[in-house]
Design a protein around this nucleic acid. Structure first.
Length: 298
DNA sequence: CTCACATCCTGGATGC
DNA sequence: TGCATCCAGGATGTGA
């Protein structure tokens, strides 16, 4: 499921239940997801208080009161849902699978007690591409998952100059470069397609051509940077994209999928003003790229 | 080094 | 109805 806007939506949904809460009990129902859980995963979490719930790229990071952090990545199909443990009125918006209520593929259950009451925070992941780990907060930045991450496509950290440094000399197609988390961290297939369309850039263009010989960003890269920023901002504001069966526990949907211009719109009219062409699907490094060959020529 | 590709896994949609 | 095939929001390890 989740790219940065969906993970951020999950974080905001979990925050009121988890931040400041104590982890009473953890049910870990299998030994591994994509990777094995760390030794004594459940036991090391039990009794700890969650100081804050953060995010870096597509990772959720729960800071604990003993200097450790629990890191979690949702992979392709991971989701969290919240269930009130007693009479609590917990209704935050957290992405999950509609069908995940049957309990199949519920791999971890966190029983928490905090300002918002008692709750179960349940991790469900049919494909098990997600993963979790525990590490010292001090070791986070040097951990292989984080060490090489590129810039966040949100806020002030994103700017064309930094992207230019990272794209210089790259012969890989722009599409592949934007999916590379070492260059920019948090974009996935949806938002890469959308950003390229907004910037009118061809997905196959060698990424290094967005950088001048001087190392400065081209006008196209400046434009792309702005498009990345706004598409991510808009998607977060919309509560992410609800594709397939992903819904939120309060019954509302993230609605950014209605804002897609090209993603999953093969054969439909390109929404470019006066364009008249249709959206095409092609495969780049094994993954679908949705684009408009008329609009995206630069 | 850089890239393209297969791979991990389940399940939904589609076609015969 | 069954069965086969393709596809899916990610990231990693391989081999060229």
């Amino acid at each position: 499921m989740p790219e940065l806007p969906e993970v951020e939506t999950v974080r905001r949904g979990l925050q009121p239940v988890m931040e400041g809460a104590r982890i009473i009990r953890v049910e870990q129902r299998r030994a591994d997801l994509r990777f094995p859980f760390p030794a004594d995963f459940a036991r090391r979490l039990e009794g700890r208080q969650i100081v804050s719930l953060g995010r870096r790229a597509k990772y959720l990071i729960a800071d604990l009161d003993n200097g450790m952090v629990m890191v979690s990545h949702l992979g392709m199909s991971g989701s969290f849902r919240i269930e009130a443990d007693s009479e609590g009125s917990l209704q935050p918006g957290v992405f999950h699978h509609a069908r995940s209520k049957d309990g199949k593929h519920d791999h971890v259950v966190f029983h928490v007690e905090g300002p918002a009451g008692r709750a179960r925070v349940i991790y469900n992941d049919p494909r098990r591409f997600g993963y979790m780990d525990l590490m010292a907060r001090a070791d986070l930045a040097d951990h292989p998952w984080f060490r090489d991450l590129g810039i966040e496509p949100t806020g002030n950290s994103l700017n064309a100059g930094v992207l230019a440094e990272r794209l210089a000399g790259k012969t890989a197609p722009l599409k592949a470069a934007l999916l590379d988390q070492r260059i920019i961290a948090g974009l996935g297939n949806i938002y890469v397609c959308e950003a390229m369309w907004r910037a009118k850039l061809s997905p196959g263009k060698p990424a290094g051509r967005l950088v001048r010989k001087s190392g400065k960003p081209t006008e196209a890269l400046e434009r792309l940077t702005g498009c990345i920023r706004t598409v991510i901002e808009e998607a977060i504001a919309a509560g992410g994209s609800s594709l397939r069966d992903h819904i939120r526990t309060d019954g509302t949907l993230g609605y950014f999928q209605h804002g897609f211009s090209v993603y999953d719109r093969e054969g439909k009219a390109c929404p470019g003003p006066g364009c008249g062409d249709t959206v095409r699907r092609m495969v780049q490094s094994g993954r679908s790229t949705f684009h408009c060959p008329t609009c995206q020529t630069k």
